[in-house]
Design a protein around this nucleic acid. Structure first.
Lengths: 250, 250
DNA sequence: TAGTGGTCTAGACCACTAA
DNA sequence: TAGTGGTCTAGACCACTAA
C-alpha cells in the first residue's frame, strides 16, 4: 500500500507492483495480482485496476495473457557482434554469419521474397544510383526457436546482381558477400546505423512482439575497397531478443 | 471511417488516425481530433475515444498535452558515431568527443556526482576487480538544447584514479581518456553493447521522455593495448534523440 | 464451469491551456 | 471562460483459459 496523496490511485498501485517486481517478490514469469484482486485489495473500479496493470505492461515489466492473467516478463537475448560477424574470414570460408550467435538454437528463414524494384529514396542515395536504375530486393524473416526476431531487406543494384546466384533463393556457400567478392565487388567497409523506436502495428504482427517492446532499425551499407557502395541492408529487430555489440580500436 | 466488423472500435478509430498520419494528412506537430471530437464523430464513450488515442501515443506516433490536445509527434535526432568519436586523435588533441555531433547546438552537463563506491556486480566483473577493490563513479546528465538526452556513469578502478584529475569535476583537456594515457593506461580497444528497452519511471523523469519513447542502454568497456580493462561507462540514452552509427572494416 | 483479461457505456469532477 | 486531456466510478457483456 502507498501514501503520496497527490499521486493518482492507478499510479500508486502500479508503483507498489513495480517495487515488488524490482525487489524480486515476483520472479520472471510469476503471476501478478489480476484485475479482480486489485479491485478488492485497493477498493477501486475495474478501469482503475486496469490502468495500473497497463502502466506496468507499457513499461515492459509485465505481459497479459487473456483469460489467464498478468505475468512478470521474461527475457532471453542473443549477442549480435556487429563487427566480427562480418569478418571476411567468416563468410570467406562459407560459414553463416549467424552461426556463433545462435549455437544450440534453431534459426530459420521462414519467409523470403526476391523482387526487382525501383529503389526507395534513401536506398537510391545510399547506393549512389542514377535516375532509372533498379535494384534487387531480397526480403526475409528470421525465426529463432519459433519466435520471429528479425525482418531484413537487402538491396543490390540490378546491374551487379543480374544473372548471378544473388537473385536466387539459395545464394550458395558464404552468401551474398561471397558472391559479390567473386565478381570483383568484395565488401570491405561497412556502416551500420541503429535507431530504436516503437513498432507499427504490422511489425507487431510480423515479429509477434509483446506489448511495450521497441524495435531497432539497422541500416547497413557495404562498400568495396575503393568506397563504392554495393549493398544496403535494412533490418528491423525485436529489441527484446538482441544485444548489439561493437568492438573497435583506437 | 473503417469497416472490419471484428476489430474493436477503438482499434478502428486508431487505424483511421494512423493511416491519416502516415499518409501525411496530419503533419508532424499538427493537432489531431481530440476526445470530444472522436466521441461525437464515432458515437463512442469517452473511455473508448481515449483508448484509440492511447494506442497512437503508445506507438510513438502522437503525444498528448494536457489541456491543449493531442499532436503528431516530431523527431530531431543526432548521429552518434561510435567509432570515430573515440579515435585517439580526437581526445589526444584535447577536443571534446561530442564536438562534431552537436555543432551549432548547446550541449551541457547539468548534473554531476563523483563518488567512491563498491562496484555493481557487472562492473566488477567487467573491470576484473578483486574482492574489496572500490571504484570511482562519475555520473552525469547531458542536456542538448534544454532537453536531457543522456545519463552516463563512468566507473574507474580507485587504484588508478586516486589522486588524479579523474576524481575532480573538471578532468581537463581531452578528459578521462587523456588522463588515463598520461599515466600509462591509454585506452585502445573498446567494446560497446547496446540494448533497447522501455524506460522505468525515474528515467522518464530524468530524461523528460515523451510517452512511448524507448531508451538505449550502452555499456562501453575501454581496454589498454594489452587487454586490461580500465573503464566501464554505462549510459542510458533517449532513443528519440539518437542515431547510433558504427563504421568498421573487413 | 469459474475466473480471467478485453471492450464498452454514460456519466462525473479535476487541473490545465489558451483565447 | 470554454475546451482540453486525466482520473475515476459502477456497472455490463464477451472470448478465452484452465481446472
Amino acid at each position: 500500500m502507498s501514501r503520496e496523496q497527490e499521486m493518482p490511485k492507478y499510479q500508486q498501485i502500479a508503483a507498489d507492483l513495480r517495487a515488488a517486481i524490482v525487489d524480486g517478490d515476483y520472479a520472471p514469469g510469476a503471476r501478478l495480482p489480476g484485475e479482480n484482486a486489485l479491485m478488492s485489495e485497493y477498493g477501486v473500479a475495474r478501469m482503475t485496476a486496469r490502468q495500473a496493470l497497463a502502466a506496468l505492461i507499457s513499461e515492459g515489466l509485465a505481459v497479459s495473457r487473456k483469460g489467464s492473467g498478468v505475468f512478470v516478463r521474461e527475457f532471453r537475448q542473443i549477442v549480435r557482434d556487429g563487427v566480427n560477424r562480418l569478418a571476411s574470414a567468416k563468410w570467406g570460408r562459407g560459414s553463416s554469419i549467424w552461426a556463433s550467435e545462435t549455437r544450440n538454437r534453431s534459426l530459420k528463414v521462414d519467409q523470403m521474397t526476391i523482387n526487382e524494384v525501383e529503389p526507395p529514396a534513401h536506398v537510391k542515395s545510399a547506393l549512389d544510383l542514377s535516375g532509372d536504375e533498379t535494384v534487387i530486393c531480397r526480403s526475409r524473416r528470421y525465426v529463432l526457436d519459433g519466435k520471429p526476431i528479425l525482418l531484413a531487406s537487402s538491396y543490390l543494384p540490378s546491374r551487379i546482381a543480374h544473372g548471378t546466384r544473388m537473385v536466387e533463393r539459395d545464394t550458395g556457400s558464404g552468401g551474398i558477400y561471397a558472391r559479390l567478392s567473386e565478381i570483383g565487388y568484395e565488401p570491405v567497409h561497412f556502416q551500420e546505423d541503429l535507431r530504436a523506436r516503437m513498432p507499427l502495428l504490422p511489425e507487431v504482427d510480423q515479429l509477434k512482439l509483446d506489448p511495450a517492446t521497441p524495435v531497432v532499425d539497422i541500416v547497413r551499407i557495404a562498400y568495396t575497397e575503393d568506397g563504392q557502395p554495393v549493398e544496403v541492408n535494412e533490418m528491423t529487430a525485436d529489441s527484446s531478443a538482441y544485444i548489439f555489440r561493437y568492438r573497435f580500436n583506437s
